[in-house]
Design a binder for these strands. Sequence first.
DNA 1: GGTATCTGACTGAACCGCCGTTCATTCTAC
DNA 2: GTAGAATGAACGGCGGTTCAGTCAGATACC
Lengths: 195, 195
Amino acid sequence: MRDPDKPQQIIAAAIRVFARGGYYNSRVSDIAREAGIASGTIYLYFKTKDEILVTLFREKMAEWVALVRRELAAERNPLAKIRKIVALHFQVLEENPDLAEVVQVELRQGQKFFRGASAHEVSAYFGVISDVLEEGVGAGLIRRDLPVKVATKMLFGAMDQLATSWVLGKRGYRLTEAADPVATIFLQGVCAHGV
Amino acid sequence: MRDPDKPQQIIAAAIRVFARGGYYNSRVSDIAREAGIASGTIYLYFKTKDEILVTLFREKMAEWVALVRRELAAERNPLAKIRKIVALHFQVLEENPDLAEVVQVELRQGQKFFRGASAHEVSAYFGVISDVLEEGVGAGLIRRDLPVKVATKMLFGAMDQLATSWVLGKRGYRLTEAADPVATIFLQGVCAHGV
DNA sequence: GGTATCTGACTGAACCGCCGTTCATTCTAC
DNA sequence: GTAGAATGAACGGCGGTTCAGTCAGATACC
């Protein structure tokens, strides 16, 4: 096992291939061709086809959470942090259309991912949002009686749905334009006083 | 082709089978066994395995939209209508766990469904929500400058995420308990004045 | 520096199990 | 007796995975 970033190349190729045709419709040999290697080589780095998808998801999600954490550190105001989360969420997807396609459409394949594989990474992202909300409650900016877990899921669900619609609508407009409206509606929904 | 509700029986069986093991992991013969018929019989009523899933989705979604429309007709106040939509959404899923599993987890299989097959039915549901929001704007209850399309997707996304979390969390609590908080946060987010 | 030997990453044709689909046959109702 | 619904064994091809063979580069020895 020489090349230390061969797995990365395979994952990058897989993202392009899955984005084009979907996971179950893509052949391992398609990924190999896209990566410019032989199909057998993939099995030097991944045990099965499934493992490619699981790893891809794990790594991208971990990168994503790390990025958000880093960016939020620069921000003090909890409400501004929420706006930043929404802006980043949309920005990253808009800048990586292939990844967006895979994450929003292909990665939802039941049993295999949302169950198990992804649980840890997704809940880390949920944790980031929850923490900010708690912070806002502590600062008196957000309703003291807000059910934080419910609000967290709502915000994630709202962003996710906007993203999915954007991907399915062939990305015929700018997703980032939705960031402000989404943040504003959400914040007005959870804040103690007006926004 | 005698039995006029044999297709329904097949669909009902398919829901149970897909809920248990997922679409791609389920064999046509599993559906046949669950329905108490031979696998070949399924091909008297459906051209392919895919058609079973597409039909299942179309029919359930159409039933769902019809139900919501019917229930809303009894309600005058647009804000109360929103509360009713949320309550119904959660109630139906809670009362049909197998369907919930299929709709929330299995039916997301990229290419095949959200693209094409389901587009019409999903947008009908979006239409119901949009109409209510427009109505609320007309009545001066909802912010005149609300971006209705964005708000529609947000509400759907929020409900959808709550439902997905509930399904993935093995349904270890009552989904309907989340209806009021969700509706309240959303309404506070879109309303012109307090709720 | 040159040659021989070795190492192990890489290849891709072939394998094999799986499963959607078919269709010759059986069954049932009239 | 017949039409047509139902059956389920068998088929076919698809595609994930394997593994015997290749070859580029490293190592050893002269």
